[in-house]
Nucleic acid binder design. Sequence first.
RNA 1: UGGGGCGUAGCCAAGCGGUAAGGCAGCGGACUUUGGAUCCGCCAUCCGUAGGUUCGAAUCCUACCGCCCCAGCCA
Length: 564
Amino acid sequence: MDTNTTPTPERSDFVRDIVASDLAAGRVDGVVTRFPPEPNGYLHIGHAKSICLNFGIASEFGGRCHLRFDDTNPIKEEQEYIDSIMTDVRWLGFDWGEHLYYASDYFEQLYEWAVHLINAGKAYVDDLSADEIREHRGTLTEPGRESPFRSRSIEENLDLFERMRAGEFPDGARVLRAKIDMASGNINFRDPVMYRILHAAHPRTGDDWCVYPSYDFAHGQSDAIEGITHSICTLEFQDHRPLYEWFIENLPVPSTPHQYEFARLNLTHTVLSKRVLLKLVREGHVRGWDDPRMPTLSGIRRRGFPAEGLRDFAGMIGVARADSVVEIEMLEHAVRDVLNRQAERRFGVIDPLKLVIENYPEGQVEQLEVTNNPEDPGAGTRMVSFSRELWIERDDFMEEPPAKYFRLAPGREVRLRSAYFVTCTDVVKDASGQVIELHCTYDPATRGGSSPDGRKVKGTLHWVSAPHAIPAEVRLYDHLFSEPFPGSEGRDLFDDLAPDSETIIAGAFVEPSLAEIPVGQTVQFERLGYFCPDPDSTDGALVFNRTLTLKDTWAKLQAQSQGR
RNA sequence: UGGGGCGUAGCCAAGCGGUAAGGCAGCGGACUUUGGAUCCGCCAUCCGUAGGUUCGAAUCCUACCGCCCCAGCCA
């Protein structure tokens, strides 16, 4: 047997093709990737695509993937973000093992390399202000002009750079620039800034430094130090690739990584921009980074989406170089697919209507066996209390049902799931005409939910026994933005925030077993959707978040008939 | 008018000179103790447009059109 074949990736895309051919051609001995977040916010589902790509490739090709914090800007970065990022990557199901790194680990080495470039006459200290540098940079169509400080002697540059590090100058007084080509069509080559002065405390290095390397001067070299073979990033860094390579070629780095770019994820009805997400949090449009409506991994987790669904989704959407916007329905499909297979079923009534079974003995309670998950026999069954007074869904009754309405109506017989057939005999209303109670009779021969005489019913309803049910708060979630492309066509992004993205229902009733479901587990409330306990739950007050609804053919029919 | 990319169905995406995978959505139907799930069928004579090369082109060439990114001491 050949035990040394090249591992076969489970999916194919242009990045995996490159990795496979590099391995096959012997251009690399093994694959090393990295996920390089800047700790300036929480990870969102766009990052999940990148995480799945980088960690996925590493595991498929028998390599490894590093987690490296790109922490070169202390002004925006915080330990809280570092902690949340590690939690989120682990939750998504990936493990960086021993390979946890920080760009800040390399600050001393980076500084030495900057000195190397100065000595080679390829970097200089510029005294121009930020505004002046911008003016000298030229425009997209006009070349830039060289800084008057560009021809400083190596000695003077060395001295000045050392004094920058020593803290002799205020923020913004000087920068270190690479000396490349002020006339380049690629603006990144117009003497890019390598170091800037920032008298700011860094989450990891504290006050050790007051000069910090820019992204361009840190990223490629960090990759080289770690022996990264394939440095995968998003499309907007394409123009930086020549600069990435320039530093690698002009510095005595220990390896030569290569950069590849793919299109970032965009999703309808949401926004994946750290800037906007931060604003949603800071301005209180949502309750926090982990609000269940947020596309952050922490929000998605609190919402009840399983990590497996996100991984499946990442596989479904593929990886390519064309800008694209994925319909959020695809994500929802991936999540439902996992939940349908794995979530245990329970009974919960969100908008309760009392149902009294007139011919059921008062005070009698029986235990009925209910299947936990018809998709998974291994999930077993549970016993649920049944009694004379029940709660059913208000939606499941109509006094004057339209065609194709299969549920309860006066005189109609339906099945109470796993219990009995009941027939509606009476409708009780209050003074305003609102239905407040239904009276029914049940057929004792239909125990368990099927009729020995073969009689069929069109509708099956979920229910909870009124004396046994426990009250709960239920939070219904929907897309954060009502528009598929928030802020498009000149609209203000925040005007597109959906007013009903969250609906809080205080008076729901759920079966008692739901009190035992731990935070982090998602269950299906039969016929309604998937729900999970929110961390806001307390012993006496349960709170459930609606993860997603079930697909609802009846709702679709109604929408169609109303649309006509 | 500079540089770098991208254009295959409503959406995502395979395809790499031999005659358009797959998924999502949608539409029909079967089945059903969740109007869930499942199953079956339909859904690009055509690959941004126009030319050219070739026996043969989504794939090669040319021109054009459209869209995205770049002028942070952000990443």
